[in-house]
């Protein structure tokens, strides 16, 4: 069957199954299992209402369990097995093997760098743009244009920035803007930005910052709008200058939002894969955890070490996960 036809059929089947499931299961509950008539009508209605939420929840939570919760435990299990020895239990041998690889430590170091730099700069730029555009007549257009990279795929962004970083032999015209500027100011050799160890990490990070700034800006701009006017007015009456107003009045009031933005970008940074995969594939000391894991799983076919590195990523996410859950529980009380 042609994939497009298969797609349409799947959509139709999914819609019919879904609506059918909910309709029929509710009907079964109300008409057959606990009918709201006869001597036990009242009791039956109560019982039906106790079961009904679970009918609504079942498909979604079954899928969540299978596609997100179960894999966490299965990955944990795989990380202590060795596939070459017929899935024998090997304890922490995979982890030991992993920490002896220099590439692993390179990935850890680079991930730490990404985590330090990308959320900080994205949030800072986002805040800057949010503040600058706050009272600007064409602020919405400016925001929309800075927000735009959000819609571009990491792979598309990789191509876009590869052109920016492009280096060609010195005899020919430079078509990458950075090298064109360097040569214009008299550099004797163009720089191949992506192969300069250590600094190339920063050149890759710029791409993610470029994408995430828009996100930070949207959220922070809404937060700035939400600040009560009176606090700002009072500061002006007291003679505060614009910088004091921004740093001493506005920022302290939006700290919770800044934390949210920061953690959300941190999560995205932890999982960064496509950019590194498309730009350098971890060569020239640009390896990161997600790409290291992909290498192990699908190139080296080493499920043990691959799963072990996935668990490391999970451990890095865990503090944020716990914090988020606690925030939500606090809110629901």
């Amino acid at each position: 069957m042609h994939p497009a036809v298969l797609g349409l059929v799947t959509i139709a089947v999914a819609v019919v199954t879904c609506v059918g499931y909910f309709y029929l299961s509710n009907l079964f509950l109300d008409k057959v299992l606990f009918p709201a008539k006869g001597p036990n009508a009242g009791r039956n209605i109560n019982r039906a209402n106790m079961i009904r939420p679970w009918l609504f929840l079942f498909p979604a939570f079954a899928a969540l369990g299978l596609y997100l919760a179960y894999p966490v435990f299965e990955t944990l299990r795989l990380s202590v097995l060795d596939r070459d020895q017929g899935n024998a239990f090997v304890g922490l041998a995979n982890y030991q093997q992993m920490v002896q690889e220099p590439k692993f430590w390179e990935a850890v170091r680079n991930n730490a760098l990404w985590l330090l730099i990308v959320p900080a700069l994205s949030t800072a730029f986002g805040l800057l743009v949010a503040q600058l555009t706050d009272r600007l007549s064409w602020g919405n257009i400016a925001k929309s244009l800075i927000f735009m990279p959000m819609a571009i795929s990491f792979v598309g962004a990789a191509v876009i920035w590869k052109l920016v970083y492009e280096a060609r032999p010195i005899e020919t015209e430079q078509i990458g803007v950075f090298n064109a500027i360097l040569v214009y100011f008299g550099a004797s050799e163009p720089i191949t930005f992506l192969t300069v160890p250590f600094w190339n990490n920063l050149f890759l990070m710029i791409i993610l910052i470029w994408i995430q700034t828009g996100f930070a800006m949207v959220i922070l701009s809404a937060a700035l709008r939400g600040i009560p006017e009176e606090t700002v007015e009072a500061a002006i009456v007291d003679g505060a200058n614009p910088f004091q107003i921004f740093f001493k009045i506005k920022i302290p009031q939006i700290v919770p939002t800044i934390v949210v933005v920061w953690t959300t970008i941190t999560i995205a940074t932890l999982k960064v894969f496509d950019i590194v995969f498309a730009m350098t594939n971890g060569q020239w000391e640009t390896q990161v955890m997600a790409n290291y894991m992909y290498d192990k799983l699908f190139r080296a076919n080493d499920w043990g070490v691959g799963s072990a590195s996935a668990i490391i990523i999970m451990l890095m996410v865990l503090p944020i996960l716990v914090w988020n859950v606690r925030q939500v529980r606090k809110e629901m009380r």
Partner: peptide, 28 residues
């Protein structure tokens, strides 16, 4: 809808929101 364990399920959803999908690749 009102049922026991509702708050817990919301917390579970929020937790799963940040689980890296990298963990799901091989098992799935």
């Amino acid at each position: 809808m009102d049922f026991p364990g509702r708050a817990l399920l919301v917390a579970v959803v929020v937790g799963l929101l940040v689980v890296p999908l990298q963990l799901a690749l091989i098992p799935l």
